Amino acid sequence: MDYLVSVVEHLDAETGTGPREIKYGVLHLQAAAEVLLKSRLLREHWSLVFSDPAKATSEKFAASDFNSCGTDAAVERLRNICGLDISKKDAAALKDLGKDRNALQHYGLTHSAEAVESRAGAVLDFLLRFLDAELLPLLDETERDSIKDDMTRVRSGLHSINGFVTERMNRLRANELKGTTDSLLPCSVCGQWALAVIPNGAHCHFCTTDVSAEELAAAFQEFDPGHPANECPQCCASTMACFAFMDGPGDEWFYCFTCQARYKPDELAGCTGCGRLWPHGREGEGTTQTLCDDCRRRIEDEELASRW
Rank of each mutant, 00 (worst) to 15 (best):
V5N: 04
R20M: 09
I161C: 05
Q105F: 10
R153C: 01
K38T: 02
T272Q: 11
G163R: 03
E141P: 00
D145M: 07
V165M: 12
A174Q: 14
C69Q: 00
Q30H: 13
A92Y: 04
L27W: 02
L172C: 06
N162I: 02
C187K: 00
G250A: 11
G157L: 10
D293C: 10
H280L: 13
T288N: 09
W193I: 03
P279W: 07
L268D: 05
Q221R: 02
S64N: 12
R119A: 14
A133T: 04
W308Q: 07
E14Q: 09
A229T: 01
Q30R: 04
A93P: 03
T152H: 07
A174S: 09
G179C: 07
T180I: 09
A113V: 08
G18D: 14
L138A: 11
A305K: 05
T288D: 10
A31C: 07
T142I: 10
A73C: 08
H280A: 11
N162P: 00
C190I: 04
V5D: 09
W193P: 00
L109Q: 09
D2I: 09
P225H: 07
H28W: 05
L27V: 01
S183F: 06
N102K: 02
T17I: 13
G275T: 02
A196Y: 04
E283W: 09
K264Q: 10
T166A: 12
W308K: 02
C207A: 15
S58A: 14
D132F: 08
A217V: 04
S183V: 08
F50V: 05
A103P: 02
R20S: 07
R168F: 07
C292E: 12
L136H: 03
T15Y: 07
L48P: 01
A261H: 05
E44H: 11
T272D: 14
V197K: 03
A120W: 03
D251Q: 08
E222H: 06
C232A: 06
G270S: 11
A305C: 11
N200Y: 09
E267L: 11
L177T: 01
F66P: 01
R307H: 06
E134D: 07
